[in-house]
């Protein structure tokens, strides 16, 4: 059990938000055309569907959101348009304006779970906001505003005096959870998106959400490895790995440092992540024991560790600077890392 500090660590966060704002719009044309073409040919279908090939070729709001962000970062308007078209007519059908999260080509109807996933919503709104602004396309800007407002209206919740981001509209608050408990996913806080969303839907307090996110990432140190869990329960007593989910630092949480770095957040807690020595690779960690459940050797995962190490002064290894698509998820993380490096002209400081 970890107790949140009685007062949010506000001063640090005001600085954080200021730094994030400086990074706004910095990712345009940061993916090399050949890297993007390799990704697009592998994972984007002609109808604009971005496939998660490790999960039976399904798609979800997250894959569509990543696809939009990468297409924007590669400056590929044609593909962005395709992905947006699919996202809009297939997923953005909920009455509340959010995206249905899960789409299965083998099912009919294709939407197999109409619940939303807030990281997908945020990625889509963020990418649309960037594209609408940069490319002066009002259709994107309008869709971004609608979606950002839907996130603000439906997914902000009060927990222990903070404004937190619910992972989805359904399932993460009482009565689906025990009384007084809210389950969150720290890796759904895509910090770089909040300043953009704040411009799109200024009526909601995005700073407060960004603040609770960094606070949770800092406070959620579970087990001997002192790492956050993929799913964290916020209870009146504090934070703990959420019941009903594996207590692991897993495929969700592994991208937290990537999001922190891309958002320009380099608080001390970033040092908790990343390699412990030169041979170390990222891993899924069982939090109760602190033991490694499985090592993640894919370049996309190693890229995250490399960026953390880079922020401490170790250059990114050459082999990670070249992109070869593997599976959807690590490939996406890899391109997001490369995009970040390009936006910083290869420097990590």
């Amino acid at each position: 059990m970890i107790t949140l500090p009685s007062r949010p660590i506000l001063p640090a966060l005001i600085m954080v938000v200021a730094m994030v704002s400086a990074a706004f719009g910095g990712f345009e044309n940061t993916i090399r055309p050949e890297d993007w073409a390799a990704y697009r040919d592998r994972f984007v279908l002609p109808d604009g569907r971005v496939i998660d090939d490790a999960n039976h070729g399904i798609s979800h709001s997250e894959s569509q959101g990543y696809g939009l962000l990468l297409a924007f970062s590669a400056g590929d308007r044609g593909t962005f348009e395709r992905i947006f078209g699919f996202t809009r007519i297939q997923l953005l059908i909920r009455d509340d304006g959010l995206a249905a999260w899960k789409w299965d080509p083998a099912a009919n109807p294709h939407i197999v779970d109409v619940n939303n996933a807030s990281d997908g919503d945020i990625l889509i709104a963020y990418a649309l906001g960037l594209a609408g602004e940069t490319w002066r396309e009002p259709r994107y800007a309008q869709a971004a505003r609608t979606l950002a407002a839907a996130v603000g209206a439906n997914l902000f919740a009060e927990a222990n005096g903070r404004t937190v981001l619910l992972p989805g509209v359904q399932g993460f608050t009482p009565p689906d959870q025990p009384k007084g408990t809210i389950v969150v996913n720290p890796s759904y806080w895509i910090f770089e998106a909040f300043p953009v969303l704040a411009e799109l839907a200024p009526e909601y307090d995005w700073d407060a959400v960004a603040s609770s996110g960094t606070e949770i990432v800092a406070a959620a140190r579970f087990g001997p490895a002192a790492l956050p869990a993929d799913w964290v329960a916020i209870t009146p007593k504090g934070l703990e790995p959420a019941e009903g989910f594996p207590a692991v630092f897993g495929y969700n949480a592994i991208r937290i440092p990537l999001y922190l770095i891309r958002a320009g957040i380099r608080d001390a807690f970033l040092t908790r992540f990343g390699p412990r020595n030169a041979q170390d690779v990222p891993a899924v960690v069982e939090l109760t024991t602190g033991k490694v459940a499985s090592r993640l050797n894919d370049a996309g995962y190693r890229m995250i560790d490399a960026l953390v190490a880079c922020s401490r002064g170790t250059p990114v290894p050459d082999d990670l600077l070249h992109f070869t698509p593997t599976n959807y998820y690590p490939s996406t993380l890899h391109l997001l890392g490369l995009s970040y490096l390009a936006s910083r002209k290869g420097k990590c400081g």
Binding site: G85, R88, I89, Q90, L92, I93, R94, D95, A100, P109, H110, I111, V114
Partner: peptide, 18 residues
């Protein structure tokens, strides 16, 4: 054409307002 597909998907997902 888009509206028609979107409306059909929304209807299948019982999103009546959409």
């Amino acid at each position: 054409a888009d509206a028609r597909i979107r409306l059909t998907n929304a209807s299948n997902a019982k999103q009546w307002k959409t």
